[in-house]
């Protein structure tokens, strides 16, 4: 049985959509440096990888998605950056949805913590949902 695609009507603001766990390993750093070699700074995760952790969690938690979603806005708050080898947990919550004309906007908040619950960073993203 296939899981139905998440549509605008699937979302209820205030709902925890799920959580994703990831190990910040050397392979993840290496893939990033392949694209942004100037970001190397030892064992500290580059700030740009906040987006990687967030978007990988988004992809894992919010699935299946309709094709053609568009990212409209993003907020990040960095408490501190994790280190190579840290295990991260990211939670995604739907916090708002609005129809503006025919455009379906859904807003999510994410929070990324360490395995002991220490807070690393948080995000808020507005997505123009395609279906």
């Amino acid at each position: 049985m296939t899981t139905p695609v998440l549509t605008f009507s699937s979302f209820t603001p205030g709902t925890l959509m799920g959580r994703s766990e990831t190990l910040l390993d050397a392979a993840a750093f290496q893939r990033w440096f392949e694209l942004f070699p100037e970001d190397e700074q030892g064992p500290v995760m580059p700030a740009g990888m906040v987006a990687v952790v967030t978007m990988r969690a988004y992809s894992e938690v919010l699935t299946p998605r309709p094709p053609g979603n568009v990212h409209g806005a993003q907020r990040f708050e960095i408490e501190r950056l994790p280190l190579l080898g840290d295990r991260l947990v990211t939670e995604f919550r739907c916090v708002d949805k609005k129809l503006r004309g025919e455009r379906k906007w859904v807003t999510f908040e994410s929070t990324t913590t360490g395995s002991a619950g220490e807070r690393f960073f948080a995000g808020r993203m507005a997505i123009l949902w395609a279906a």
Binding site: A47, G72, A73, Q74, R75, E77, E79, R80, L81
Partner: peptide, 19 residues
């Protein structure tokens, strides 16, 4: 940010943008 203020500049930073 890093090129201007160094490796630790992102700690405590917040970024709010629109595409």
């Amino acid at each position: 940010l890093r090129a201007t203020f160094g490796d630790k500049a992102a700690k405590g930073a917040s970024l709010d943008i629109r595409f």
